[in-house]
Simulated scan of single mutants.
Amino acid sequence: MTEEPAIRVQGLKKSFKKLHVLRGVDFEVERGSVFALLGSNGAGKTTVVKILATLLKSDAGTATVHGFDVATRAGEVRESISLTGQFAAVDEILTGRENLILVAKLRHMKAPGAIADELLVRFSLTEAGNRKAATYSGGMRRRLDIAMSLIGKPPIIFLDEPTTGLDPEGRIEVWETVKQLAAQGTTVLLTTQYLDEAEQLADRIAILHKGTIIQTGTLAYLKQLLPVATVEYVEKQPSLEDVFLALVGDTRATGSEEVSDTASDGRAVR
């Protein structure tokens, strides 16, 4: 017997008056995988997430999350998921640790302080745990937001445009967090409009365009859809992200080594 997928969507449709947002969406998400719903603004990504999270009712079609029908068993679905929206939902007046304790208490968890401390360690926020969230960088706030969403250990997490508004360093911090979640067995449904984000994180990618899925598959499969280009000479140039991190210092490094390189005009960059 094959294992029931973590998420199954069949023929999902949704309209707002005369605006047809979803026109029959179909996809499945395997348990313990990262699935990227890739599309431009207005493609319908957030509408799909809201339906799966029981925040919105579809006009037609069916969807199950963790084996529960979103229309008839909404309570069980909500107990199985966590949703992180486009903007971090942290209380800036509270410290990072206080934010985590508050959510743990609201979910009636035992030993909320211990849960908070464990998550601070897990998301590399221990040193900032007693600082107010208002002092956090964008990447730190997003990590705290994701940590809050994991209280209660939901098997499925929805990340709706998780790196919106973040600088390059913040985006990389969130990417590392998502990779850790997947490594620990959490099923992640990620919506994004960034091609590199889907390429970096997803086991499978579904391209949503004008309310329908036009293609689904692994990155390798999607690349095979286009013919291989013939290249006679390729000069690899550093990406803007490489340049940025080299100039400001890669915060992922633990050491304090000076970054040095040579610019295209021969000037030393330090």
Rank of each mutant, 00 (worst) to 15 (best):
M1P: 14
T2Y: 10
E4V: 12
E4Y: 02
A6I: 14
A6S: 15
L12H: 02
K14Q: 09
G24V: 07
D26P: 04
E30L: 10
E30D: 13
E30S: 10
S33Y: 05
S33G: 08
V34K: 01
F35C: 01
L38W: 07
G39P: 07
G39S: 06
S40N: 11
T46N: 10
T46A: 04
T47Q: 04
V48W: 03
V49G: 08
I51V: 11
A53I: 11
L55K: 03
T62M: 04
V70W: 01
T72P: 02
A74C: 01
G75C: 00
G75K: 02
V77E: 06
L83H: 01
L83M: 13
Q86H: 11
A88I: 07
V90Q: 01
V90T: 01
T95Q: 04
G96Q: 01
N99Y: 09
N99H: 07
I101M: 12
L106Y: 09
R107E: 10
L120I: 02
V121K: 04
N130A: 11
Y136K: 08
M140L: 10
R143T: 00
L144I: 00
A147E: 12
M148V: 09
S149F: 08
G152M: 13
K153L: 12
K153D: 15
I157C: 03
T164G: 03
E169P: 01
R171W: 04
I172Y: 11
E173M: 15
E173G: 00
E176P: 00
V178N: 02
Q180M: 15
L181I: 00
Q193W: 01
Q193P: 00
Y194R: 14
L201A: 11
K210M: 12
G211D: 05
Q215L: 14
L222G: 05
K223D: 12
A229M: 12
A229G: 07
E232V: 08
E235G: 13
E235W: 10
D242S: 10
A246T: 13
G249V: 04
T254F: 07
S256I: 01
E257R: 08
E258N: 06
D261R: 05
A263V: 06
G266K: 10
G266N: 06
R267T: 13
R270G: 12
